[in-house]
Amino acid sequence: MTHFVVVGIGADGWDGLSGHAQAELRSAEHVYGSARQLAMLPDGIGAETTAWSSPMSAHLDRVLADDSTETVHLLASGDPMFHGLAASVVRAIGADRVTVFGASSSVSLAAARLGWDLARTEVRSLVTGEVESLVPALTDGARILVLSRDGDSPRRVADLLRRKDFGWSTLTVLGDLGGVDESVTTGLARSWDLDEAPALNIVAVECVGPARTRAPGRPDADYAHDGQLTKQPFRALTVCALAPAEGQLLWDVGAGSGSIAIEWLRQTRTGRAIAFEADPVRAERIAANAREHGVAERLTVAGAAPEALRAVPDPDTVFIGGGLDAELLDTCWDALDGGGLLVANAVTLESERLLVAAREERGGDLIRVSVERAGALGSMTAWRPALPVVQWTVTR
């Protein structure tokens, strides 16, 4: 099978490569890269060169599937294993078929220019993601390095910061890092007026704004909904019971506004969730809420349960918040492997009886939670109780 050699090349081009990387490219028979990267190779390279066609992902898939050549060389920007090409290649074909020659990443170069400690800096990528993916990282005093998709990314970052009450944050756009055309532009998000930055840029954000926690239990007003919303105290309790963990897949069944899946996703960087909702208007609302909270890339909105449950990957964790019946409960239970976690909430006597019976058959913990809020009673104040919630938590 073909072996792939990925060589990271920075804006400083050929001269910035190590001797080993240069020797590797001199021995190459076929080199793939962007037109910009290929233009950095010296005339003495005897390899055949091919520029990536658009979309690059489809072209890369074809190259990886072609076993007609013993060794193929691929050019990548900066450190290929940091949000880069080599990481995608390793995911596709395995590390044993890939050799990587890394260069300094744009993040490392940016931290060096700014004097920022990378261990205390959040890194986010807009290369394939939307600008809203920055939202979970926004809090007063945070430092964020944003890998830009293009020259318009800084403007979109500034727009987001203004919209999320972080307009006094400082933006520094570092363009063409390591190259002869390296540039640095600094300003406030609230008055940002750089319409177009260099195509190759990274945005450094020093957040000034409200202190925001990632803990579950966001205010109810943070979600668009039609009343189908797990209220704040019950949501905080439920997300904690669901025990968010990296790399896990959550089913949110009867998702309503999507608030449980969204806050579960906010606790991890690599978790994924599927929200099942029969009502198409609510399904669109779930997607909009996920975008606003910066987790849309990791949340999929599916159709009605239990039918739609059979057409998606099996979960690690299941939450049932709506439409609870015996068939749905059995289907979700059967979908879990050993060690899988199921949490179900009930507010009616009928669904409560289902959970009591399920606990008798399958074990787990059953709790009943009541919450009262202080509210106006004429000119005085009184406690106003919410409907109690019965919650069943069980590990298969």
Rank of each mutant, 00 (worst) to 15 (best):
E48F: 11
L38P: 13
V72K: 04
A21Q: 13
V63Y: 04
A39K: 13
H83S: 13
W52R: 13
D66R: 03
A35Q: 14
M40K: 04
G78V: 09
L38N: 05
L60T: 06
P55E: 04
A35P: 03
G46W: 15
A47K: 02
A65F: 12
S68M: 01
P42Y: 10
H73M: 01
S53I: 05
Q22Y: 15
A28M: 04
V72W: 00
E24H: 11
D61T: 09
A51V: 09
H59K: 03
V31M: 00
Q22K: 15
M56E: 07
A35E: 12
L38I: 05
A35G: 09
L38K: 05
E70G: 07
G46S: 09
Q37F: 01
P55H: 15
H59F: 09
V63F: 06
V63H: 00
H83C: 10
G46C: 03
H73K: 13
D66H: 12
W52Q: 01
S77G: 02
G33R: 04
T69E: 06
G46D: 04
G44P: 09
L38F: 14
L25A: 08
R62L: 14
S57E: 06
L25N: 13
L60F: 03
T50V: 12
R26L: 02
S77T: 09
Q37H: 02
L38R: 07
D67T: 08
L41G: 15
H59M: 04
A47G: 10
G33K: 07
H30R: 06
G78Y: 00
T69Q: 15
E48V: 08
T49P: 03
H73F: 02
A23T: 10
D79P: 01
L64S: 07
S27C: 07
T49V: 11
E70W: 03
V63A: 01
L60C: 02
S77Y: 00
L41S: 07
L74Y: 00
T50S: 15
H73E: 03
A51N: 14
S53F: 02
Y32Q: 01
S57Y: 13
S53G: 08
A65L: 05
H30E: 10
T69C: 09
S54V: 05
M81L: 06
P55A: 11
G44V: 09
H30K: 10
Q37P: 02
D43P: 10
F82C: 10
S27T: 13
F82L: 10
E70N: 13
T71N: 14
S54H: 09
H20V: 11
A39C: 07
S77P: 09
R36T: 14
A65V: 02
G46E: 13
A21S: 08
A39I: 11
S68I: 06
P55N: 06
I45Q: 01
T49R: 00
